[in-house]
């Protein structure tokens, strides 16, 4: 049971971080379908940082490891998301095509990079696996019997940050105006392009962070050919279910996280083992639930009005 709660909290953290990323980007007016790819690249940054620390600085303190992994994952996410921002904001590309390209490119690039590093280290090693058994332990701490993860704390901070930024600061309110009616925002002197860039880059930082949390959940190595198994899109479903509001996104993420966690730990429950279902059924669960939830809630969706439409200053 404790294991189920731990995993639920971990997967909910991933979903909250990435869905908040989507939330920032969509509130500024850009649909970020590339979150999946951004997660992969963020995860790559974090995983490489961990394996480098394990090899070159084995004595590094836990604090250094935690901070450097978090910062580098976010940095990778930000840099990678700028590819989306350039194409969608400045060159008015189709946001769906560019987002899809970002996803495919993320997995392909991560695989190529990891394989190149592995092969350079050992010519016989052609796998796309990065290992981080030792440094991963720096992220864990215990409260009573519970094994918690610093990422959960970071997620709470991100949640508070998102709520305050979006609703209590000039910057957040202006950004949301750009997602609702960019022409009106421009008419009162807000630079729509800048705001959209800010939205996409923040989503890159949060998406990259979500990526490293995802690949460290439960495993100590990651095969980058797998990408992140549609988690970026699950996060978008969480965001829609959460009606683009941080506090509701957190609740939605807990629900989805629970179903994802079940597929990891169902063998620990006697009655589920007794059902004798193939493991594939549990793997399918989060996706089935999200489809049902979306079907029930999308009708009255409160999406930002101008999302997905490139802003053209000269258009009336």
């Amino acid at each position: 049971m404790t294991l189920l709660i731990e995993y639920t909290l971990l997967y909910a953290s991933v979903l909250i971080l990435v869905a908040l990323g989507g939330c920032f980007s969509e509130h500024s007016g850009v649909i970020n379908l590339g979150l999946e790819g951004i997660m992969v690249i963020g995860a790559l940054g974090g995983a490489l940082t961990m394996s480098t620390i394990a090899q070159s600085f084995p004595g590094a303190s836990a604090l250094v490891i935690v901070l450097s992994v978090i910062l580098i994952s976010m940095l990778f996410g930000v840099v990678y998301s700028s590819l989306l921002a350039v194409a969608c904001i400045n060159f008015k590309g189709d946001q769906t095509i560019v987002g899809t390209a970002i996803n495919i490119l993320g997995t392909a690039a991560a695989t190529v990079i990891v394989k190149a590093i592995n092969t350079a280290a050992n010519p016989n090693n052609v796998s796309s696996v990065v290992k981080y058994i030792q440094p991963k332990k720096a992220f864990l701490f215990h409260v009573g019997d519970f094994e918690l993860n610093w990422f959960m704390v970071v997620t709470l901070i991100a949640l508070a940050f998102a709520y305050i930024t979006l609703y209590k600061t000039k910057f957040g309110l202006r950004m949301m105006a750009c997602g609702e009616h960019p022409q009106a925002a421009d008419s009162v002197g807000i630079n729509v392009y800048k705001m959209r860039w800010a939205g996409v880059l923040i989503s890159g930082a949060l998406g990259g962070l979500g990526g490293i949390v995802y690949i460290t959940a439960g495993v100590s190595e990651w095969k980058f050919e797998y990408g992140v198994a549609g988690f970026g899109f699950l996060a978008l479903a969480v965001m829609i279910f959460g009606q683009w509001k941080p506090q509701r996104i957190a609740l939605a993420a807990l629900l989805f996280g629970l179903f994802r966690a079940l597929s990891n730990v169902y063998t620990g429950f006697d009655f589920m083992v007794a059902l004798n279902l193939p493991s594939g059924v549990y793997n399918m669960m989060p996706y089935i639930i999200s489809l049902i939830v979306l079907a029930l809630t999308s009708k009255k969706s409160r999406a930002p009005k101008a999302e997905g439409i490139p802003y053209d200053k000269g258009q009336r």
């Binding site: 194409a87 590309g93 095509i97 390209a101 970002i102 490119l105 690039a109």
Partner: peptide, 9 residues
Amino acid sequence: AIIIYLCGF
């Protein structure tokens, strides 16, 4: 993947 990305332009 790069080709699709470029198609966006």
